[in-house]
Design a protein around this nucleic acid. Structure first.
Lengths: 207, 207
DNA sequence: AAAGTAAGTAAGTAATTACTTACTTGCATG
DNA sequence: CATGCAAGTAAGTAATTACTTACTTACTTT
């Protein structure tokens, strides 16, 4: 067995994510980590402290938004819509494939519940969220500078973008594909709306 | 004392919303409802059954999206963007003012957690969500028919719209206004993006 | 070989929790 | 007046939970 501490942290992430903080028992976490329950308490002192350490151990929600950006950041000849389409589908792919990512998102989701009661958790959650919004925000800023995007508040654009993915990944977690249908198609439709808006083009010219 | 049963249901909604299903204790709910704990069990048999009844008792998440629509549906001369701006701000206002609405949303939020474990809860949650998405969807459909909106998938538009409001109301619940800043301004920026998209107008003409 | 360290086993504690049983009180209706 | 019903009081049960104590085992370092 490798690093006991890390194994406990990973197990805690999974159990917190699937059972919620209150629902997760230290016994269950220890079992999942293949250690004796007493070992968990020796290493982390209390359940509350364990949560804190898991928080520190898992800083980003999507395994790395930066990595997802890299896939097209070299090819400068792509138009913005195509880039976002690629980004969106990569996010969707990461959601499907990486189990750890799914757990991280559900963990983050649990933090919303816990954050309303514990200010320290809210603080940690806040920096989690910033970590996703910031690179996106900067990306949009750059697009505006490069003249590929009209002048909108880049943070609002990032929040709109993230809203969609957080919400729909939640829906998919609970309902599978029954609520939203095919992932890629749905994302294409979102990107279409996000980039072009819902108004008719002729109506736009008036402004 | 009025209707004991209803008082318990209301109390349960509040406690489930703020503590989560697992975190809510029957004792606390009874206390909140000003009844003896035993009365709760006499009326509802079990905690699980109480959840079911609360579910039935609170069907819509926003007190009524229909009401919010009414505020402009008679004035047909408004353009779509203005209408959506009004709708968005009405939603924001309802969020701020109506405590019961806030509790309902947090309750719905809790259902996401619980729904992953209990298929019946997921089912109820699904119809909750449909109840918000459907009228919006139909509204967009109508706008498309009236030529005020370009042809996009109306359900995807509704989901995009709802995503934003669910996610940001969650953020506001946890962080207050510190994360997003002024409510109305932020919503204006969202509506701007949602209606007009993020691309430059000249880029749109190429398509 | 001795000593330290990381882990396990086993048992237990005090508190909490969903839920029950048995009996009582107050009020309305026949 | 008597009967019935809705609600309360009080006490308790069995299970679970976070966490502790005391002792043991196995492996590594000196």
């Amino acid at each position: 067995m490798e690093d006991t501490e890390q194994r406990i942290l990973d197990a805690a992430l999974r159990i917190f994510a699937s059972e919620g903080y209150t629902g997760a028992t230290t016994r269950r976490i220890a079992e999942e980590a293949n250690v004796a329950e007493v070992t968990l308490f020796r290493k982390f002192k209390s359940k509350e402290n364990l949560l804190r350490e898991v928080l520190i151990n898992n800083r980003s929600v999507f395994s790395s938004l930066d990595d997802l950006f890299k896939s097209f950041q070299k090819e400068t000849d792509l138009d913005l819509e195509t880039e976002l389409r690629i980004l969106g589908k990569n996010i969707a792919k990461a959601m499907r494939d990486k189990k750890k990512d799914s757990k991280r998102r559900m963990f983050m989701f649990m933090l919303f519940e816990e954050g309303r009661r514990r200010p320290e958790v809210a603080g940690a959650l806040s920096s989690f969220l910033q970590m996703n919004i910031k690179p996106l925000s900067e990306y949009f800023e750059l697009q505006i500078k490069n003249g590929k995007m009209r002048t909108v508040n880049s943070r609002s654009a990032a929040i709109t973008f993230v809203s969609y993915f957080v919400y729909t990944s939640l829906l998919r977690e609970v309902f599978g594909d029954s609520f939203l249908g095919d992932n890629d198609e749905e994302i294409e439709r979102f990107i279409d709306i996000f980039t072009k808006g819902i108004l008719k083009v002729e109506d736009l010219k008036n402004r």
